[in-house]
């Protein structure tokens, strides 16, 4: 199923610069319905309060880490089908394995290019 350009996307990162970069790339890819959250906890609150089609999240964040948020999403009956793309500097194989086990939809290692993100989104929504 191709990605719906109108779907609401949640960008989760504690760094404002990264949120802006990811949002900019998503805009250039044609997605304009973008929301943001600073950590996993805030993201979960937003996800439960509204309908989102896609989550792009960092790993290492205060309050609630991205991996914990991912587990919480997969454990929630209402949220568990939302695709989650991890965009992270946590570049150890163990991190990737942990994310796969937690149910990540795909994984982008920082620093990344717009092409990489586009490719991963295409794969998730193919």
């Amino acid at each position: 199923m191709p990605a719906d350009p109108n779907m609401k996307i949640l960008v989760v990162d504690d760094m404002s610069t990264m949120r802006r970069i990811v949002k900019n790339i998503l805009k250039q890819l044609g997605f304009n319905n973008l929301e943001e959250a600073e950590n996993g906890q805030e993201a979960l609150t937003k996800l439960k309060a509204d309908t989102y089609g896609f989550v792009v999240s960092d790993w290492n964040m205060p309050v609630m880490m991205g991996i914990d948020m991912l587990r919480a999403i997969r454990a929630d009956e209402k949220l568990k089908k939302i695709p989650v793309l991890m965009v992270t500097a946590e570049a150890q194989k163990e991190n990737l394995m942990e994310a796969v086990q937690a149910g990540v939809s795909n994984y982008v290692v920082k620093p990344f290019t717009a092409e990489t993100m586009q490719e991963k989104i295409s794969k998730i929504f193919k």
């Binding site: 610069t17 970069i21 790339i25 920082k110 620093p111 990344f112 717009a114």
Partner: peptide, 19 residues
């Protein structure tokens, strides 16, 4: 436009610096 997007993504260095 492609170059501008490359500049944007290159700025992700700041996130790595901050971490």
């Amino acid at each position: 436009d492609k170059r501008l997007l490359d500049i944007m993504t290159a700025l992700s260095f700041q996130d790595l610096v901050a971490q």
